[in-house]
Design a protein around this nucleic acid. Sequence first.
DNA 1: TTCCATTGAATGGGTGATCCATTTAATAAT
DNA 2: ATTATTAAATGGATCACCCATTCAATGGAA
Lengths: 288, 288
Amino acid sequence: MSTKSSPRTPARPRSPSPNRRERVPDHRAAGAPAAPAFRPIHTRRAFEEICERIREQLALGVLKPGDKLPPERDLAQQLGVSRNVLREALRSLEMAGVLRLLKGVKGGAFIQEGDTSRMNGVMRDMLSLGTISVRELSEARVHVLDLVVRLACANARKADLDALEANIRRTEDATREGRLLDRVECSREFYKLLAASTGNKVIAMIMDSVTEIHMRFVYAKVSSSGVAMARLAEKRRQFLAALGERNVASATRLMRTHLESVQRMLEQDPGAMSLHVALAEVQPGMRR
Amino acid sequence: MSTKSSPRTPARPRSPSPNRRERVPDHRAAGAPAAPAFRPIHTRRAFEEICERIREQLALGVLKPGDKLPPERDLAQQLGVSRNVLREALRSLEMAGVLRLLKGVKGGAFIQEGDTSRMNGVMRDMLSLGTISVRELSEARVHVLDLVVRLACANARKADLDALEANIRRTEDATREGRLLDRVECSREFYKLLAASTGNKVIAMIMDSVTEIHMRFVYAKVSSSGVAMARLAEKRRQFLAALGERNVASATRLMRTHLESVQRMLEQDPGAMSLHVALAEVQPGMRR
DNA sequence: TTCCATTGAATGGGTGATCCATTTAATAAT
DNA sequence: ATTATTAAATGGATCACCCATTCAATGGAA
């Protein structure tokens, strides 16, 4: 195959020039104290370039959610790469939530609607890699939640409040019937609904990302020890009332004291708080 | 190869049972108003399982940053998959910032230190896909910045303030010498330093993710129109002084008015504010 | 006609063999 | 001791297949 390799190489200029990225000499002006200089370069690889081009088409609006890319065999030929390499790129984009690959005739690579839960995965990775700590995450959650409560007070619409109301009813049902883990699931959803009621998907996304791990800890705790927050639905109702009255001070206070009591519950047996308990497996109903 | 396929299949149970994920019947209890039910399943594929297993090892602490995975050929055999499929998984993990692949003897797949800028990519994708809007992002940025200022007032250490001071000096230099784009770069760094001075990497990560796109707009604006924020360094000094005095009210007020004036600058020519201008290409010095 | 089973093409999922390019260490030549 | 050469390890990439799934077209039975 190396002998007849002529018809395939042209589209992607391979070896010499574009293979090493231009050394940009850290052009921060004089007076800079830091400048560790020389961040490493890594040679440009085909699949990176493919990912970049597809993202470029997205940013340009040429590709939109719902659109379909050409079949792998065709696209590979268009790009002048082997099908395997193209698939590496497509897989990466699928993992990133940009694409969805479907089999069969009428299948193909479809641009996805953006999945706001992607940020959760980043947060999980950062935690797994030790880049961030549970303490930082909890602290951030307190602050973000504070912001969310304020925004929800300002922006929540009737439909949002109704959804929260329905959620609380489900919490009551689960409490009455002793379905503790379902109640945790309700909590997860409660915070998601609260985040959505800010009316800002960016804020909601951030909120969800700092909440997901926390709910895993709660799940693990409840699951292992059987303990559960007392008077949960009652507290939720109080909070919802404050929200409905647009009473920021009250809502904020209620949420804060609730967070503190949850934190106390989690911390009373630090053994169960190990990271891998929360990260290792996906609980039922927890969508990744 | 299909004839002697016996030695490779065992590690990964393939076709029938684990191929379709269990239908979880949307077990939200009675009273639920919503429930779109039936979110689609997609068949489990080898590369997903591989990614999951490696992430599992990470979460369990078996793998840590700096560790090296076995060579592709070995690992593929251990997992009972072909090398190509393994590479799809490794590529995905590399794109996610979890791995780094290096060539040559002594090369291999190394677990990376967590890269806090990964969240930026998610934000970019969400914007490209139209899931979030520039308006939402700007609004979120205002709120997050507000939080960051408060936390920075509370937690910034001398080293943080010194770094900000040095950054302002560079801004002054760039202003004096008319290097407008360098000054934008200084701004980008200013917000990064400010975020870091909260002492919370999660908050910093969030802040960076909502700032990166914004700075691209600023860059595009300055680059195309040549206009630039008046009295920038001066305003920065005032802000830094307030920060040094732990004067939350003053620092917050200064930051807010500054944000408003930047916003006015950006909006006075909405033509240059198109999304793809900011998203399409990476500006020099802007690390992705 | 209507309905259902069959078939076959399109497409992603996956494999194995093979070669290239880069990097490093060991070795040989100077 | 220094420098050039060589060889091995490893990721990067290609090719040529084959399998599994899906769905539309086809055709026969009711």
